[in-house]
Computed example of a mutant assay.
Amino acid sequence: MRKKLFPQLWMYFVAITFLLMVVVLSVFVCLLFIVNHFKLLAPERENHLFPFYFIIFLSLVIGAVLSIFVGKRILQPIGNLRQAMNKVAKGDFTLQLGEEQQVEDVAELYHDFNVMVNELNSIETLRNDFVSTVSHEFKTPLATIKGYVQLLQNNSLAEEERQSYLERMLEGTQQLTHLTDNILKLSKLENQGIGLDFQSFRLDEQIREVILFLQPKWEQLDLTLDLTLPRTNYYGNEEFLYQVWLNLMDNAIKYSQKNSSIRVQLINETQGQLIIISDEGIGMTEKVADRIFDKFYQSDTSRKTSGNGLGLALAKQIIELHHGTIKVNSIPGQGSSFKLFLPNDLENS
């Protein structure tokens, strides 16, 4: 059964049209009665056409008043909606219409319009975040793969080393394959609230894989790695958490001084897992540390080409989706220490 569109608008239009006809008819009947009773249109009377002109003038006034009323109640809201839709068509997704309208159907129409604009804004944000995040997150795996390709050009490599490098390159390409889907899911989580898929995996082995994957970078700086990674099974999203360790370790290497050290600790606590990643790099001020997890925030403009300020924001969001926390302690010139806590009870939550 076809649903009636805007019933109240039709009621207003019909009622106003009917009222217009009744009022005009009543005025004409009254005027004709007066004219006939007093014989005002008799040719022998002076100004005998005045009542006729008066009837025309009165009809025009009544029609104008009712037209203005119809315009303000029905036509003007539709005109406002048309103008708003033109702005949305040009890319303005922040526009909102006031929903406090006297006609209920107009209020519902404005409400549906606002919902539509919010959805379009969410989709636009999703698209922008996806493009920006992909451009940032692809750089680390691509740089690592490039490093192994350069190592493979050494003809003196042993076959065992060559196979090892090829396997790590394969892992990097697989990581790139999964990365696009993961970032898209993460953006949807932020904008639409879709849930994560959790499973049990070896957390210590995952962190080792990331460190091994970044080996060309930390070997180039002659960094010393101090690892404390006891066997740890964890229930969470394996693919997303991989991005956390990749971002944090990549930052620790990037901002470290040559011949310095990086310390990675995995501590099994009663309520969850504590992960600490510390470096001896350039550090940051308290002001920078307060904003380091904000999207697109970059404190060091000289390093702008190495990222767009999304890595740590992405890491924080993933940790929070695991109901965990991430904090940073840093001293300029001495290094930074990132502390993450992941609770153990996700399987029952």
Rank of each mutant, 00 (worst) to 15 (best):
Q192K: 07
A89V: 13
H111A: 05
Q243A: 06
S299D: 14
K139N: 10
N191T: 15
L221N: 15
K185R: 08
S256L: 05
L95S: 00
E137C: 09
Q163P: 00
T140Y: 02
S132C: 05
S200M: 11
V244W: 06
F93G: 11
V27E: 15
Q298H: 07
I253R: 01
A252R: 01
L340P: 00
Q83I: 10
F130N: 04
I277S: 00
R127H: 06
I68W: 13
V65C: 12
F69N: 12
D105S: 01
H37F: 15
L5H: 07
T325G: 01
D92T: 14
Y165M: 10
I319A: 12
Q265Y: 14
T133R: 09
L241I: 04
K146P: 05
L66H: 09
K316L: 12
L196P: 11
G79W: 02
N80D: 05
R73S: 02
P43M: 09
P43W: 05
L9C: 08
A64G: 05
N251H: 09
Y165V: 07
I145Y: 03
K146H: 10
S26I: 03
K287H: 06
L49H: 13
D197G: 01
F18L: 14
L189Q: 15
L166Y: 03
Y297G: 08
N233H: 12
I62T: 06
Q317L: 05
E286Q: 06
R73I: 08
K146C: 04
V14A: 13
I276V: 08
G324M: 07
E347S: 14
K146S: 08
V29N: 10
E219K: 11
Q206M: 15
Q102K: 06
M21T: 12
T305M: 15
P230G: 10
E171D: 12
G272R: 00
I331V: 14
T140G: 01
T224N: 06
F18N: 14
R82I: 11
S299G: 15
A64D: 08
G333V: 13
L196N: 08
Q102D: 15
I276E: 05
S302F: 10
L310M: 15
G172Y: 01
D204F: 13
R162P: 10
K287T: 11
I55R: 02
Q298V: 12
S135N: 11
I55Q: 07
I16E: 09
T270N: 04
H323D: 09
L310D: 10
S256P: 00
K185S: 03
Q101I: 04
E205I: 11
